[in-house]
């Protein structure tokens, strides 16, 4: 696939953090692509490296982070790793927008919604009235009723679900090429969550924007995403289209994650499946496969060296010796 079809193309990204205990290898050899107009879901449990990945894309890593020299992050044909200060400013918040779990991370409590939205357009040669008009139209588009009048309201005058809608409107104001949503509905009740997901589906038709959707909720990934990336302890262990991932998962970790989800178990029973053991220490990695200490399917090659990425078929691949030996 050529880069022009992919808004984002991450190749062999490795990131470590210097810590008192030694080098913590938070991301190892990450490859991922976000094709034009597609929604790519990232699933993974806490500590798997989702935030480190997003921060790498925006070059917002903590000062103790070290990015491996081989790493490439190609965004619309440009290498983010090579970008200077002003390019990075254009990238953050304009070419790439973010939606967070807590809408208040993005909203200023003491500035009216209309003023915050107009501020986003500071680079554009529009009159104040035109900016307000754009803001009101955008609010209407994300389903805020009476949008013109509500421009003068402050964040606390909106409910949680409405605030998240406003954040989505703000994220779309600059017409970004990539929208990154980091657990955008985790703080919401299920009915509000369903409404926001429905809104995101609608918007994707209208805005032709590609999206990276981070969530640990498998149900949301299944409903919204075209492609799915499964991360475990700093590696992409499996990726493919949403049907391959949910119906033909190959990596033992993906398979177990699907089995654990209470929403996928229809019979009422009292003991739920779990993944025994815990995530390995990223300062002291196992010699073989990263999942081997917890893997029920482990066999001889697994303890010797880490598996590479093996094709299952088409765009579906998994980092597991079982796929190679199948």
């Amino acid at each position: 696939m050529s880069t022009s079809e992919n808004v984002l193309d991450v190749r062999d990204l490795s990131v470590s953090f210097n810590t008192a205990r030694g080098s913590l290898r938070a991301l190892r050899h990450i490859d991922l692509k976000v094709p034009q107009n597609k929604i790519v879901g990232i699933v993974g449990e806490s500590g798997c490296g989702k935030s480190t990945l997003i921060n790498s894309l925006l070059r917002l890593l903590a000062p103790n982070a070290v990015v491996d020299d081989n790493s490439e992050i190609i965004f619309e044909g440009e290498d983010v790793m090579e970008m200077g200060k002003s390019d990075l400013q254009g990238l953050r918040g304009q070419r790439i927008s973010m939606i967070f779990q807590d809408p208040m991370t993005a909203l200023n409590p003491v500035i009216s919604i209309g003023a915050q939205m107009s501020d986003i357009l500071y680079r554009q040669k529009l009159t104040k009235a035109q900016k307000r008009e754009r803001a009101a139209a955008m609010l209407a588009q994300v389903g805020i009723p009476d949008s013109v009048r509500r421009l003068d309201d402050y964040p606390h005058q909106f409910s949680g679900g409405m605030r998240q809608r406003i954040c989505i409107a703000m994220a779309l104001m600059m017409n970004p090429s990539l929208l990154i949503a980091d657990e955008p509905t985790t703080a919401l009740d299920v009915t509000l969550e369903a409404q926001i997901i429905h809104l995101m589906k609608e918007l994707r038709e209208d805005f032709e924007c590609s999206m990276l959707f981070v969530s640990h909720n498998l149900g949301l990934i299944a409903e919204l995403c075209d492609e799915v990336i499964v991360m475990y302890a700093g590696e992409v262990v499996e990726q493919g289209n949403v049907h391959d991932l949910f119906h033909r998962a190959q990596h033992p970790y993906t398979q177990m994650l699907l089995e654990c989800d209470p929403a996928r178990i229809s019979e009422t029973r009292k003991d739920l499946p779990t993944i025994s053991g815990s995530v390995p220490d990223l300062v002291d990695l196992p010699q073989g496969c990263i999942f081997s200490p917890r893997c029920p399917k482990r066999y001889e090659p697994c303890n010797e060296s880490p598996p590479g990425t093996f094709e299952v078929g088409g765009q579906h691949s998994a980092r597991c010796f079982k796929v190679r030996d199948a």
Binding site: V190, T191, L218, V242
Partner: peptide, 10 residues
């Protein structure tokens, strides 16, 4: 409420 629970099956 039941209808709003996302179906973990694409």
């Amino acid at each position: 409420l039941l209808a709003a629970v996302p179906e973990p099956d694409p």
